[in-house]
Design a protein around this nucleic acid. Sequence first.
DNA 1: ACTAGGTTTCCTGATT
DNA 2: CAATCAGGAAACCTAG
Length: 277
Amino acid sequence: MIMILEGAGRMSINSSSNLLHQQPSWTDGYSTCNVSSSFYGTQWHEIHPQYWTKFQVWEWLQHLLDTNQLDANCIPFQEFDINGEHLCSMSLQEFTQAAGTAGQLLYSNLQHLKWNGQCGSDMYQPHNVIVKTEQTELLDSKTFCRSQISMTTPSHQPPETSDVKKSQDHIPKSHTKKHNPRGTHLWEFIRDILLNPEKNPGLIKWEDRSEGVFRFLKSEAVAQLWGKKKNNSSMTYEKLSRAMRYYYKREILERVDGRRLVYKFGKNARGWRENEN
DNA sequence: ACTAGGTTTCCTGATT
DNA sequence: CAATCAGGAAACCTAG
């Protein structure tokens, strides 16, 4: 309890949700329900695989890549453009066909999730998940999302609160195995929004799909989302864009001159191409 | 305890 | 004028 209060200086749960509330523009014209429940809120590890959306299936795949230190092309995401129900019906053989050697890993991990769940008793706690208003999900998802990572090495992360920054010191190291979960890198976060149009309520748009050129339509909303993912309610496009500019040097992004809010994936960015392997 | 990578924060100045 | 873009500098955070 102390930890929650301590962290309030840097990021306030309330301010986070309020900010998003004050800026409903990016949900205009879209189903608020869909958006909040499948993209911003409920994440793959919060619900049974059977009910995953395509997006959540991808989140799971991304997580496996990260926790197993695999290269992005170890798993052909395009082979998994399916929802959880379909995923759960796949046999080991089908997994192997779809993902080669990684198929075994995917299959066994999924079996584990199917039968054991990953969130233990917290998984269906009402205050965390089930019925979410747009507001509640905004805070609850963050309390939740970092808690159960890395089930390839079944462990027991404590459900870190959203305000972990300062309080973390007193959380036993052995319990904070992987705080930087799947796809937490900014460019991957951006990429994933682009790759999931049905979950992208007009936030970012491809300008040239084959060239990897894209444009921010709602820069501040994206920044808010990014901030939410990082438990930082004070994220702004100004700051997010600074991080984006650092990618130029690493060639994860290429500069696009003269066009505001436009970026282009560079040669070190993986996983954004339509037929990438 | 220390380090490196990846931001985050802040800032000054230029550009659109 | 406000919003962006450009980078430098330094602080921060987390995994290792």
